[in-house]
């Protein structure tokens, strides 16, 4: 069955961030190489507008580049530390990008950039009530997840590890529990992924998609790494559908024992 977010069918299970790339050209090539059809973007102040009298630069250049990619946009509220900041940022993004989709981040602290779950639920309720399709950046906490669904979220995006940390899946047990607890909710591992193997692991667990940015943007060759992640995510998805065998403690011969030459019963 094809993956859907808020009724929109999605081909690629890789959602890509657009920040930290060495150049706009490499960003464009990486998005194409990944075959991602959803990218995250943000709204930010423009340096030129901090002083009156200077001509406006505006994000027109970046905007043109993004439009050329012809992908679906998932604006974020990155860096927001309060409910009010997140809600206002979401509304500015909705007008700017003409989409109800919002990746909702309400950040608790700078050290871990971890979700403030209390603020997240509060902001999610305000935005869902206002017609937004909210993609909450959350943790594996099942209680918070239930509250997010109750207020209207139809997708959950638990972190793998702190944003930009490249630590992979810090708490596989909790992520597996979350997948088992919400079998029918689209679940996206968002943040902390460093290597394609991390993404493959999330997909093998049955996660519906992976959202990442730094792991591709900061790779030695981001375009090549985008291909690597696309491959890993596809492989992990296939493995989940195929059913991964259970590990066991002792060896079990793969070559038939019957007919082994020189075989003797002890």
């Amino acid at each position: 069955m094809m993956l859907e977010f808020y009724g929109q069918k999605v081909q690629s299970r890789l959602l890509m961030g657009t920040a930290l790339y060495p150049s706009p050209d490499i960003l464009q090539k990486a998005v194409k190489a990944s075959h991602a059809d959803i990218v995250t973007i943000s709204v930010r102040r423009e340096a030129a507008t901090t002083q009156l009298g200077q001509s406006a630069q505006s994000g027109e250049g970046f905007w043109e580049l993004i439009r050329e990619l012809n992908v679906r946009l998932l604006p974020n509220t990155a860096g927001c530390k309060s409910v009010k900041e997140a809600v206002t940022t979401a509304k500015m993004a909705r007008e700017l990008f003409e989409t109800n989709w919002i990746k909702l981040e309400v950040i608790a602290n700078d050290d871990m950039l971890q979700p403030d779950l209390f603020g997240l639920v509060e902001a999610a309720k305000i935005l869902c009530d206002d017609g937004f399709d909210v993609f909450p950046y959350t943790t594996e906490d099942l209680g918070a997840a239930e509250r997010l669904l109750e207020v209207g979220c139809k997708v959950l995006m638990p972190w793998g590890a702190p944003i930009g940390s490249a630590r992979g899946l810090n708490n596989p047990f909790a992520l597996e529990s979350m997948r088992a607890y919400f079998p029918d909710i689209p679940l996206v591992v968002d943040a902390g992924v460093g290597a394609p193997s991390h993404a493959a692991k999330a997909m093998e667990m049955g996660y519906d998609a992976v959202l990442l940015n730094t792991a591709i943007a900061k790779a030695g060759d981001p375009v090549y790494m985008a291909e690597a992640f696309a491959g890993a995510i596809a492989a992990g998805r296939s493995a989940y559908k195929a059913g991964v065998m259970e590990p066991r403690n002792m060896a079990s011969p793969s070559t038939p024992v019957a007919g082994t030459p020189f075989f003797k019963l002890d």
Binding site: G17, T18, A19, L20, Y21, L27, T40, I41, S42, V43, R44, R45, E46, T49, S58, G59, E60, F62, W63, I66, P75, N76, A78, M92, L96, F97, I163, G164, A191, N213, T214
Partner: peptide, 10 residues
């Protein structure tokens, strides 16, 4: 007053 524009994001 805040005036914002599209920017790269993760």
């Amino acid at each position: 007053i805040e005036i914002v524009a599209p920017r790269q994001g993760g």
